[in-house]
Design a protein around this nucleic acid. Structure first.
Lengths: 342, 342
DNA sequence: TTGTAGGCGTTATCAA
DNA sequence: TTGATAACGCCTACAA
């Protein structure tokens, strides 16, 4: 066990012990150059004996690289963001990069200063496009390579990775239309830019058939908000045949409260949403949802970021991941005799 | 919009523009010293005009501080770990520290090298005590300040923060005992050191009454594993009156599969577990669980870590957080006429 | 109150 | 194949 507080060995200590120059050590440990077998052996031994590991900060001063990448998300406790992070973390680790996560929810509004200072500590950033414009502008101005979460992107010169929300809405709309639903309530969340896209897709699915889509706005994309709004939504005379929520958390709040209110889902009303978080299949009834491919999004975003850091122009690439409908038991067919294969 | 690729302004640029020395700028921006109003104004203006922000790496070389702290967890997609991270992130942000998270699940076994290199990029680490001993030893040897998640700690010279698992098991055991349960199955997870503590507490609760506790071991602490084991557990003749799972995920898998098998919970068998993750109240029936205080644990661990970084001896402090029983509908009384207030 | 100068650990350039 | 040396941007004695 090496003593804790001793000054860590430097490249000079190694050079001295191996009787070579620091330049030689540097080149060798960075794998950039081969040397005489004898020299290499001496260096290797010195490194081991002194427990040498290089100082990332000193290296960073020269190379301009920190070896860190950042992910800025809105709320780490939302499982959708967790899966984004999970995917991004995998790719970052594979690339030998450390992942700094900044939870905007924790900093009581993503203070500009915090983000600015983060920019200087990372080689690049993956950022939710839902952050306040001022915060994003600060990041952009810093010149840090950036990739955005969330399609479509309001920042056309930067890559933005995500599922097509309009497409997702369309898929879910068609599912409900084919099931015979005609009166839909969309519980949106206007705080998220792409809630409107989901709604647009949803409406589009009902073009040409006699149907109505009514919209209600949630003030937060959370289970609690779903519970809060449940009674007014579920007991309303114009509730309709189906409620589509902006995300699974809202829908799960609805489902929970529906039980308390004694309203049977899907018999009295179908419920569906977006994200397909892991817990949707555990609630009763299991939640129909459109998988917004969080992990794949996180992975691709990080892959794009790494490319951007290496100087590639990444904005033009294909960054749209197709969503997938996952039909479960919270939606049912209203058409007599017609049952969905599950 | 400043041009992205331009070299960032240095302290020398500021000094030049403000017509003072770099030392003056350094002292001023670090708030260490006051100067003539005029000088301060000139510096302030120069800083703004050049968009100066200091280079953390250059500073770090001198101070030996990175401004980063790390959290090493086992699986970020487990909501318990997510809440740990969430709590830790809040405190780190408040302390002006960036949070690097390392997901051991992502690195296909927490490779020693990765952890070692992480040690050099952070001022301190919060680490799950469930990591392989070799990995932990590496961290310890590096001299990096460390705080552990999970009580009790096998590393007595370092702080370890968490709930008392024995206590938690005892609470849940007493709950079941008071409800009249006498034949218990504990679905443990021997991969976690403290599963045995929970079991011990559980058994202790039934000392002095005629009761039996049978143990089964899960091979992973996940929903899927709970589903996989459900039929063998639920259909077994010695299932007993109640099943206690190592964590909520296992229990939720059990609950889901119980529905498929047509076994009524809690009427035929009670189910309960540990962690009290946010989704336990959303499943049917809502899951009785012992709250292991993930967020509070994360917060306290980070607070201790910051103290340790500042040189305090933190191992001796009080680092045990009391667990809390949250009784819900997955457990019921077997005693005639006795109903729990909920 | 302000400035000078040395050094932190590394890499890159250039010379030997 | 190897080495000497100049940066990198900042902090901090110490001096003025």
């Amino acid at each position: 066990m090496s003593s804790p507080r001793k000054r860590a060995a430097t490249i000079r200590d190694v050079a001295l012990a191996a009787k070579v120059s620091t330049a030689t050590v540097s080149k060798f440990v960075n794998g950039g150059q081969r040397f005489t077998a004898e020299v290499e052996a001496r260096i290797t031994q010195a490194v081991r004996e002194l427990g040498y590991s290089l100082n990332p900060m000193a290296r960073g001063m020269i190379t301009g690289r920190t070896g860190n990448v950042g992910v800025v998300i809105l709320d780490i406790r939302n499982p959708y963001f967790t899966s984004l992070v999970s995917g991004a973390a995998r790719v970052a680790a594979a690339g030998g990069l450390n992942l700094i996560i900044a939870d905007a929810a924790e900093s009581t509004s993503p203070e500009l200063g915090v983000l600015q200072s983060l920019c200087r500590r990372v080689d690049g950033l993956v950022v939710s496009a839902r952050l306040p414009a001022a915060a994003i502008q600060g990041v952009l101005d810093s010149g840090t390579p950036v990739v955005f979460f969330g399609r479509p992107s309001p920042y056309p010169h930067h890559a933005s990775v995500g599922c097509d929300s309009h497409q997702a809405g369309l898929m879910l709309g068609r599912h409900l239309r084919d099931l015979g639903h005609r009166r839909i309530t969309y519980l949106g969340f206007s705080g998220a830019r792409w809630s409107a896209d989901r709604e647009r897709g949803l409406r589009e699915a009902f073009q040409g058939v006699k149907a109505s889509v009514r919209t209600v706005d949630a003030s937060a994309p959370s289970t609690e908000e779903g519970e809060r709004l449940a009674s007014s939504l579920l007991l309303s005379p114009d509730r309709g045949d189906a409620i589509v929520a902006y995300n699974d958390l809202l829908a799960m709040g609805l489902l929970l409260e529906a039980q308390s209110l004694g309203i049977a889902v899907p018999d009295e009303v179908s419920v569906a949403a977006f994200d397909n978080i892991a817990y949707g299949r555990l609630v009763s009834p299991a939640l129909t949802s459109v998988d917004m491919m969080g992990e794949a999004t996180g992975e691709l975003a990080m892959r794009r970021l790494i490319a951007a850091i290496q100087g590639e122009d990444v904005a033009a690439q294909e960054n749209v991941i197709p969503p997938r409908l996952v039909a479960r038991n919270s939606t049912r067919s209203l058409i007599k005799g017609k049952h969905l294969a599950r």
